[in-house]
Amino acid sequence: MRTNDVMLQTATKVVTFIILMFAVHIFFAGHYTPGGGFIGGLLTTTAIVLLMLAFDIPTVKKVLPINYVVLTAVGLLFAIATASASIIFDVPFFTHAYDYYDLPLFGETSLHSALLFDIGVYLVVVGVTMTIIQTIGEDE
């Protein structure tokens, strides 16, 4: 049965971007207000899931040609690297560093190595959830 998905698809195009923006926001907000890598990653996944829902898996794959396992591995490497950086400075593993910078546009911002770690978390979460959903979704 062919059904008409125009409404869903149109709405999705808009909503996906809203969600993605929200995801980015919530990811960066994480250190000070609720949010963080997990939720950011999960939200990103929901955005992609929504795309899959409205369109179909091959289309989404064409739009986002990402190998999610690689993405997971990269995310994990990112996290490990951030955590291991402290070994180079001979301080206990996982010691974070941070400082405050005065950036144009953003005003005073703190740059925190924990954020880098959180990026790793973010990538892993996206990678893993998408891997799972995609593999099951594709399975005959």
């Binding site: 998905d5 369109f55 179909d56 898996i57 091959p58 979704g137």
Partner: peptide
């Protein structure tokens, strides 16, 4: 409910 599956496997 409509299709019995969530993701379409084939491009439409």
């Amino acid at each position: 409910l409509e299709r019995g599956e969530i993701f379409d496997r084939d491009p439409r």
